[in-house]
Design a protein around this nucleic acid. Structure first.
Lengths: 166, 166
DNA sequence: TATTGTTATACTCTATAACTATA
DNA sequence: TATAGTTATAGAGTATAACAATA
């Protein structure tokens, strides 16, 4: 206890650095957001897919699978679920009868608006303790780190990973 | 494209908020850190366990399982692996022959020092683009958010969740 | 022969619930 | 009867690879 070297080590364990904090708060943010999406009956990957389809309608499943870095076989079940709920639609394209182009339905667009509303509420909830300028500063610092770490804007690295089931 | 309402929505999709950024950078930080731990042949949960054992030696597996919020049956395999590698030791306690108290071995202590060294390197790597005062500011802001969100200091919410296998 | 989408299979990881031995 | 640790089992989720239709 009175060993100064051990005390320094204990201190290093006690005070979290930026790397730990961003991971801790990020995991928390992620969990809260997934809970909001679950209330809309959506999985995080389903949301990402909806947004990708909205951003560029008519892409093939293969193209989406490539963009999202997930195997094509996983895309099938993903699209199945969203199509069953009437949020996206598989449509044939002229010229190649193998391809199934993905489109958002009107209901899919409505749900996507709810997603954006819920995401905005999530942002407000997470930043409740910061005033607007502090929040802007946090965004600026994290954007710098993200850019310097080579992270693409708006692309979450966890999307391609396995999802915690809760 | 020229619809101002649609343009506003597109803008909202394009610029990430703090919640997304912290989750994105946090996930990236987490992945880099796990890669460093993997080089020491350690899983993130093994590291957490090592640190808990180091912080309070002689606890029972049940007590640890309780503290780490994982089922006792999972603790068994976790301890098995660490004991096989000679990092922790199960010891009987006097008075109750059911209990197996966990202790760090000298090798376990050496590995834990490597863990702390690797974590410090990870911190430096992640914050490479920030000067010291910016890093301190980021830490302060994230600490505020963490405290206001009710996150316990030094406790990562993802520990109890399933781990991405990579 | 190559490619799109699909289905089948086998594998990994997990929690739940028996089970053993002590208390 | 209850508890600490262990083992067995069954389920969820996944990637890999086989498959059918089309190019």
């Amino acid at each position: 206890m009175s060993d100064p070297k051990a005390a320094r080590e204990a201190e290093r364990l006690r005070v979290p650095g930026a790397a730990f904090l961003v991971s801790q708060v990020g995991s928390h943010s992620s969990r809260l957001w997934r809970e909001r999406m679950a209330r809309l009956d959506l999985d995080s990957r389903e949301v990402v897919l909806l947004r990708h389809v909205a951003a560029a309608e008519g892409q093939s499943q293969q193209a989406l699978a490539e963009a999202l870095q997930i195997p094509a076989s996983r895309m099938v079940a993903l699209v199945d679920g969203l199509e069953r709920r009437g949020l996206v639609q598989r449509r044939p394209i002229r010229g190649d009868r193998r391809v199934r182009a993905l489109h958002l339905t009107p209901e899919g667009r409505r749900v996507l608006r709810k997603v954006m509303k819920a995401s905005a509420e999530h942002e407000a909830e997470l930043c409740a303790g910061l005033d607007p300028s502090e929040r802007e500063h946090l965004i600026a610092l994290l954007s710098r780190v993200a850019a310097e770490q080579g992270l693409a804007t708006g692309v979450h690295p966890g999307v391609a990973e396995k999802q915690p089931s809760r």
